[in-house]
């Protein structure tokens, strides 16, 4: 069927087919003018615009990459700063804790020493009080013994004795006992 078409077409073309191959003047003129218009548009508008666009795009991309790099560098330096600050803060905190600890130790030692001194004072004073009490009690007892001895001797003798002489006699005796 297609062969039929081709034969038919060929037959038809043969009659005056050469016309198909000869350009007509209106088409030549129209073609040249239209192509000139297209060329003018491409030459003066499309291609320069396209080149300008590609340049701008290149600049914009390069600019953005630079900007991104600058921002990245800034972020890195900020990060370094923060890290340094954090490290500084940590060591400072450690120092503070350490100082507080040593201060507390000093306070503790002071308090203990003070308490010990105080305790020793109290014990010493108690001892002093006890020995003075003891001495007083001894004196009183000695007095009492002397008086009782004299009273007893007077009752035996039935007469009053020279109280002062007797007392010194008893005291001497007691003193000799203490000395023995």
């Amino acid at each position: 069927m297609i062969a039929d078409v081709l034969i038919l077409a060929e037959e038809a073309t043969e009659s005056s087919g050469i016309d198909l191959l000869i350009p007509t003047v209106p088409e030549l003129v129209g073609g040249v003018l239209a192509f000139a218009v297209v060329f003018f548009v491409m030459w003066k508008f499309a291609w320069p615009q396209m080149q300008q666009l590609l340049d701008n795009r290149q600049k914009a991309i390069a600019g953005q990459i630079q900007e991104a790099e600058a921002i990245k560098a800034e972020a890195q330096s900020l990060l370094d700063d923060y890290r340094q600050q954090v490290a500084g803060a940590k060591s400072e905190a450690n120092q503070i804790v350490e100082a507080a600890r040593s201060q507390a130790d000093t306070v503790k030692a002071d308090l203990i020493a003070k308490a010990q001194t105080e305790a020793q004072g109290i014990v010493g004073k108690a001892r002093e009080d006890a020995s003075s009490e003891k001495a007083r009690a001894m004196t009183e007892a000695r007095q009492e013994v002397a008086n009782l001895s004299i009273d007893l001797a007077e009752k035996v003798v039935g007469n009053s004795l020279d109280r002062a002489a007797q007392k010194s006699l008893v005291d001497n005796y007691l003193a000799s006992l203490e000395g023995a």
């Binding site: 078409v5 038919l8 038809a12 009659s15 016309d19 198909l20 088409e27 003129v29």
Partner: peptide
């Protein structure tokens, strides 16, 4: 017939408005 062929295939190309189409393309 099985195909409607014009009496002259050249008729397929006889468009007086071809210059207009060319201009339209531009």
């Amino acid at each position: 017939e099985v195909v409607c062929v014009p009496a002259n295939v050249l008729d397929l190309f006889e468009f007086n408005s071809v210059p207009i189409f060319i201009g339209l393309g531009a």
